[in-house]
Structures are given as structure tokens and as C-alpha cells.
Write a protein that binds this DNA or RNA. Sequence first.
DNA 1: GCCGTTTTCGGCCCGACTGTTTTCAGTCG
Length: 570
Amino acid sequence: MLNKKTVVRTLEKIALYLELKGENPFKVSAFRKAANALELDERSLDEIDDYTKIKGIGKGTGAVIEELIRTGESQQLKELEQQVPKGLIPLLKIPGLGGKKLAKLYHELGVDSAESLREACESKKIRSLPGFGPKTEEKILKELERFGEKKERLPIWYLESVVQEIETLLSSIQEIERFSVAGSFRRVNETSKDLDFVIATKHPEIVKEQLLNRLAVKEIAGSGETKVSVVLDLDELVSVDFRLVSNNEYITALHHFTGSKEHNVRMRQLAKEQGKKISEYGVEQADGQVMTFQSEEDFFAHFGLPYIPPAVRETGQELDRLDELDRLVAIEDIKADLHMHTTFSDGAHSVQEMGEALIGRGYQFGAITDHSQSLKVANGLTPERLKKQRAEIEAFNESHPGFTLFAGTEMDILPDGSLDYDDDVLKELDFVIASIHTSFSQPQEKIMERLFNAITNPHVHMIAHPTGRIISQREGYHPDVEQLIYWAKEYGKILELNASPYRLDLCVEHLKLAMELGVPIAINTDAHAIEQLDYMAIGTMYAQKAWLKKELVVNTWSVEQFKEFIRKNK
DNA sequence: GCCGTTTTCGGCCCGACTGTTTTCAGTCG
């Protein structure tokens, strides 16, 4: 059976070629919409009997799908591939060049690759075409040079520090009334193409000047009355857009620039049905009056909607799942953090300091889970040191009534599949996390054998960062996650959503499966220092992307519920 | 190309910015 992804990609490819032909943009987007609609449909290819019943797929696109399933190829795509050279596709990525301009360049000058585009610029042929000029030539040449130099997407853990730096700067500019990061970073995407900030100010010129002077600006990509786009020269080149609006317009602008595009489209369609019109400057009523809002809650309420958190504003389908929103896990529900390190192993703060930091965050319980003995680089704990730590934890609990610190471990699952502590050590601990830190490149069978040994051990409560991935940097040890989730279900264990922006492991797709099966999930920061306890916010918002319900999230349980769970697993 | 009980034709989200133009098309998000 043909892969659904292949069908989706084929439809997208047709859209791309149509775009390059300079076709009607609505036709182009119809193919994209059809691809999207098919992808979002939860059924597999052979479970769908009539494709044209899916909204967004009609006679034309439905026929392409049918043909693909029947013959494995699309006649329409084949014809397009003959009409439009392949080399044009990567050129669509050049800023300023879209389908129409590229179509013109191809037909008039025979441009069909990066190389021939460069030649056309250098021989100054482009400026003679209507709609093109010398500046376009220069810009294309510059973009061609930089082709490949700038990273396509940057990971959330890198952008996080950039955002903090920019926020510090924005806080120091007096003319700014309020500001927020927006865009895909605010929606907690794993990677983003650029950063967006929305700024409320009465003095856009001054703010603009301050930004351009005080940031490490490598290039000003655009600068208008309400928008400044720059490329920052940091460890990586980072594109940042600043939108400057009045305080009144701030909320609608924030909503607009938080997106996603698909979410905004759905919102605008809904507004239209209500006789209203949404723009970044406000909501125009039927009588022409423009309304603005004090908060995003008010904005959504204006359309009769509950607050939709940024993390789920993704496909537009969130507007069909409004009744699930109040069951979504949120940071206010979090009562505990169950994975953290102290100075006993590789953490920066003591048991006492971590415990007090948890109390300071309003939590009701937590677990200290330092590394185990074989992880020498992290100063893992021997059973003797584990006992010493337990004494500290008990002393802490005595002096802090109303809060419970559990004595735990993040125990290594060793390369041979054995566990780093004997059962008689484990049974003395309140909370046992097992995880893999070594021998990532073993074959999947071996990795699964290790995980199976851990998950079937009666003293183990949770598997931490189940895949070992680092976003955009390392793929982890490639476990069969689906199998692992089924095991967790069968043996009644917790799986972790590691909240560190480096990890976010399990990922959204796997969290969805875990939720379907009712496997409990713990959102944990894996903090190695007090500040990292703040990762809980990122982890919780990331969990929302999988529509994780609060009752499945261990950290929302009461301490009694949690005690009951760990007692059962002894 | 897709869609629709106000429409089977005429819309399709909306606006900023740029570089080309003397009022606007193309691109972008």
C-alpha cells in the first residue's frame, strides 16, 4: 500500500510546480490545502473510501490521489515536471523570489538553476524585465551568496537564550509599554525559522532606533513604520522581526503574529461568519467600528470562544476541539517536579536549596533524583552516598511541613542491560527513574532489551527521556517508542516528558499515543540548577501540543495520589 | 482547484513592505 506521506508530498509537489508556472495562487493553495487536509485526517489511506468527502479535497485533487493509489504516479505531476525545470524549486527559497517572478525569469531569460540565475544577474539582464530593476538584481546576488550559509531553522534551546537577551533589552527601553515574543517560538515549536516580537509603544521611531543601535545587527532586512526585520550576528545568524503597534492594538497584534497562519485563517473565517473582520489592528464590527482588547482571553471571548493557548494554535483544527481545552494540562496544575539533580552528582545546588526552590514555586512535592554510581562523569552516587543523601532529605522534610521531598535516583540502565543498583538498594528509595546515558549506537534490539529490563523491574517507576534525543543535534538511541509505550501500559509505569528545551522527550507524536493508551506522563525539568526548574513552563506548554489531559500528568496529582502510585510499584 | 441553504459563480484571510512604478504587483508571514 502506498504511503500516505508520499501522497501528501506529491500534492505539495504539484502545488510547488504550479506556483513555479505562475498559476492562479488560489489553485496553488487548493493543492496545498488538499495535502494538508489529507495529512490532518487521522485515518490511514485504505480506511478512507471517498477522498472527496474530506473538506478541501474535491474532484481534481481527489482524482490525483486515486490515480496515485492505483498507479503509483500522477500524470499531472509528470507533465508539470516536463514543463518546469527541477532546478527552479530550490530558488523559491530565495527571499523576494516567488512563483511569478521565477516563472518570468525562466520564460524570458531561461533561468533554470542557481547558476543561470547568477549569470543573468551578473550580465544585468534581469533589470530589463518589467517589474524587475537593478535593486532586485543586487538583492538576488546577495541572497545567492548567502545561500546555505544561514541555518534554515534554529532549535528552541538555542533561541531561548536569544529571546531572553532580547527581552532584557526590550525591558530597558523606556518608550516600550509592553512586549511579548510571538510566532512559532511562543507556540513552543521545536525549531523556528525566525523570532517575532510584538511591542506596544507611542514612540515607534525611538524604539526602532534603539533596537538598531543596541542589537548585534548584521543586516537590516526591512524597515517600515510598524515593522523592523533584522538579521542578528550571534553564534548563529538569527532573523528577528519586531512589530511596533499602539497599546490598544497590542492584543490583536500579538494574536496575529503568534499565528499559526492556519489558526489565523480559521479565526478570520469565523469572524467573517459573525460579520466581523480581524486584522492585527483590531476587530472591525459590522458597523465599521474597530474593537480592541485588553487580553487574549477577551479577544477569544469576543467570538464566543474559550482561551486557546498558543501551543495548540497550530492546524486550525483546535477550533473543533474547544470542549477539550479545559482539561488540558496547564502550568497552574503542576504540583511537583520529579526529576532533578543536586551537588551530590552533577547539579549546582544542594538538596536543601533545590527543595526550597520547589516550595518557592508553589509545589507540594518533589523528588531528588541524582545520577547512579556508574555514571562517573556526573559523580554518580554509591549506595553509601545515597544513604547519606536520604538523611539530608528526611531532615529537610522534618523542617518543612506541608511539603514532601521524595528520595529518588536517576539510575543508569547499563550497556549490558543490567541496572546500576541492586534491588535491595532500589527498594529503599521512594522514586526510581531509569534511563540510558551510554552506548547509544547499539542495535535497536539491544536497546529495547535494556529498556525492557528496566521497565519490568518492580522497583522502577519511570523511564526518563525515553529516546535520548537532543533537538536538531542528536537523534538518540532509536528505541521502538511505540513498543515502549505499550510496555509502560502493561507494567503500569510512568514515561517522562523531559521539559528541558534540549530534549522535549517524549515528543508530541509519542505523547499522543501514550495518552490514547492512558499511560501516565511526568513532565520533569531534569534541572541541574535552580533556574532550570523554570523549564516546567516550556514542558507544560509542549505537552499541550499533544493535547495532554491533566489527569494523566503525574505532576498534577495530589501527594496522596502519588504516594499511592509509588507504593503500588514496590 | 474548492466551496456553498443567503450563492453553482465569484469568492478564496489580511495587511506591510519593497521595488517597481507614477498607482501597483509580488512576496511574505
